[in-house]
Each structure stands twice: as structure tokens, then as C-alpha cells.
């Protein structure tokens, strides 16, 4: 109990620190006082422009995208009772990217403002439904991983196809962005576009806590304790699709955040899925903010993709998880 509260406080502090660092670190070397002053007052010419229009949206999106990925990873793991479930790994992110790319390339995104996040949402929702269906009621790891591979590969191939066929010569270069994600040069427009969907999605996912706790004992036990599984499933599908869809629409598909953070933080909450949700959101935010800072420190002029760093941390972690599960499931 106290461990959980301590973890919440410390993680919140860490996120706040990383958010501040994200604001203060960038290719243009700005003074600390100067930049904070310009950020708050809006005065200071180009410094204010850099702080308010370039650094602030980047830091905000890092926070939001990370929180959303951590939270939906924790919720999906809770619902499927499988520590390998994660929006990136099971193809939800890549399907959202396909939705986003389709709406951009067909011109739908230009027809009305919400078309882009809504298309990404639709792509994500389709993938979540497919994963839930394929993984079945007992959430076998093998079925989940195979379904994830198939969905990711299909969505990735279709995304590449659409971008290859685009009349725009730059589009084909963007395959990497949609698969790996980046926060470079995002603006407040993107924040406003994604924020409502992310808030909605997080709200829906946070409401699943008690149902997920009960699911610890399996579906029959949960239902006999009064959990409406159909409603819970709907919350998971809509919540994940809305949150991940909006995140992918503005930042591309960043992998492994939803895998690493819930697993790392689970011991701190005694395994309880409901307590894990807020903690995983904070952890995800910290991870993406840190990765985005690292991206700028390692290669300031190169637009290194976010997913490169999260995968560098996440993939060995994933192998470690599989290694440990090897003994459990023959």
C-alpha cells in the first residue's frame, strides 16, 4: 500500500523533471531563465516562438503519448491476463498507423480536422477486436503473439504499399516514421488534435480497474462476482483504440512502452491490475520523455526515431519475458 503511494509520488516527480528537461533541451542552446521566462510570458521574440510552438508541444506529446501507451499496455495485459499484450506488439499501433496513412493519402484527413485521429482510431479498434478474438477467452500467449505478428505484418505491408503508391515523393521515406514514431517538429495543432481522444481513451481505460482485478481469477469467477464482461471488453476496445489511435496519428507507432512499463511496475502494486493502471501511465510518460530527450542528445541533427530507443530497451526485455515464460508454457 505505502509502496504504491511512494511509487506514485516518485514517478510523478520523475515525469515532472523529465518534462522540464524536455522543455530545456534542444538543438538551439537557450539559457534556462531566458527560456522559462519566454515560455511563460510569450515575450522574447524567437525564444518565445521556440519555447511555445516547438518545445512545448514536443514535451506535451511525449508526456501524453507515453502515458497513453503505458496505460493501454497495462489495461490490455490485465484484460488478456498476459504480460505480452501490448499495443505495439499485437499490431494495434501499426493498424492505427495504417488508418492514419490511409486518411492522409486519400485526402480524407484534409477534409475535416478530426478525420486523421478518427481514421487511426478505426484502424486501432479493428486490430484490438481481432486480437481479442484471436487470443480467445483464456489468453494463450502463443495465440496472442501469432495474431500480433500477423496483424503487424499485414498493417505494415499495407502502410508501405499506400506510401509507395503515393504521388508524393517524400511519402515513401515516411514508412520508417510510421513504424518507429517521432516527436520531431510537432506543433500545438497536433496536441489539440490528439488530446480529446487521449483523454477519452484514458478515461475509459481507467474505468476498467475493478473489472480487471476480478479477471485475475478468470472470466467465470469475474462474471460470477458481477463483472459485466461485454461492457469491460467494450471499454478496453474503445479506450485502447481512442488513446492509441490518437497517439499514433500524431507521433507514429512507438513500440515496447506498453510492454516494459507495466511489467516493471507490477511488483510495486502487488500485481493488482487496477493499481497498476495509473502507475503504468506515469511510467510510460517517463519512458517516452526520456527516450525523446535521448534522441535529441545522441543525434541532435538527425531526427533519430523514438521507436529505435524504446526498442533498444524493449526488445531485450521482451526476450527476457519469453525466456521466463518458456518454463511455464510448454
Amino acid at each position: 500500500m505505502t509502496l504504491r503511494i511512494t511509487a506514485l509520488v516518485l514517478l510523478s516527480l520523475l515525469v515532472a523533471l523529465l518534462f522540464l528537461a524536455s522543455l530545456l533541451i534542444g538543438p538551439a542552446a537557450l539559457g534556462l531563465k531566458q527560456s522559462i521566462g519566454a515560455l511563460l510570458s510569450g515575450e522574447g521574440g524567437p525564444v518565445a516562438l521556440v519555447m511555445q510552438e516547438i518545445r512545448l508541444p514536443r514535451a506535451l506529446l511525449g508526456l501524453l503519448v507515453g502515458a497513453v501507451l503505458g496505460l493501454s499496455g497495462a489495461a490490455m495485459q490485465g484484460f488478456l491476463r498476459n504480460p505480452l499484450a501490448e499495443p505495439g506488439l499485437v499490431g494495434v499501433s501499426s493498424s492505427a498507423a495504417l488508418g492514419a496513412v490511409l486518411s492522409l493519402q486519400t485526402g480524407l484527413a484534409a477534409s475535416f480536422a478530426l478525420a486523421l485521429p478518427l481514421s487511426a482510431l478505426a484502424g486501432a479498434a479493428l486490430a484490438v477486436l481481432l486480437v481479442l478474438f484471436m487470443a480467445g477467452p483464456h489468453g494463450g500467449a502463443l495465440a496472442l503473439i501469432l495474431a500480433g505478428i500477423a496483424i503487424s505484418a499485414l498493417a505494415g505491408a499495407l502502410t508501405s504499399l499506400v506510401l509507395n503508391l503515393s504521388p508524393n515523393p517524400f511519402a515513401v521515406m515516411e514508412i520508417v516514421y510510421w513504424m518507429m514514431g517521432s516527436l520531431a517538429d510537432r506543433s500545438m495543432t497536433h496536441v489539440w488534435l490528439a488530446l480529446p481522444f487521449m483523454i477519452l481513451g484514458c478515461g475509459l481505460l481507467l474505468a476498467t480497474g475493478r473489472g480487471l482485478d476480478a479477471l485475475t481469477l478468470g472470466e467465470d469467477a469475474a462474471r460470477s462476482m458481477g463483472v459485466d464482461l461485454a461492457r469491460l471488453r467494450l471499454l478496453i476496445v474503445l479506450g485502447t483504440a481512442s488513446a492509441v489511435g490518437a497517439s499514433v496519428a500524431v507521433a507514429g507507432a512507438v513500440g515496447f512502452v506498453g510492454l516494459v512499463m507495466p511489467h516493471l511496475l507490477r511488483p510495486l502494486v502487488g500485481g493488482r491490475p487496477s493499481h497498476l493502471l495509473p502507475l503504468a501511465a506515469l511510467g510510460g510518460a517517463a519512458m517516452v520523455l526520456a527516450a525523446d530527450i535521448a534522441v535529441r542528445l545522441i543525434a541532435p541533427d538527425q531526427d533519430l526515431k523514438l521507436g529505435v530507443l524504446t526498442a533498444l530497451v524493449g526488445a531485450p526485455f521482451f526476450l527476457h519475458l519469453l525466456w521466463r515464460m518458456r518454463g511455464v508454457e510448454a
Binding site: 491476463r81 479477471l215 485475475t216 481469477l217 478468470g218 467465470d220 469467477a221 460470477s224 507490477r266 511488483p267 502487488g270 500485481g271 493488482r272 491490475p273
Partner: peptide, 10 residues
């Protein structure tokens, strides 16, 4: 239920 599932280390 017959299956004695406890999925997380609670």
C-alpha cells in the same frame, strides 16, 4: 470455478 486461475502475483 474448477480452474483455479490466479493470473497475477497478488
Amino acid at each position: 470455478p474448477q480452474s483455479r486461475d490466479i493470473h497475477w502475483p497478488v
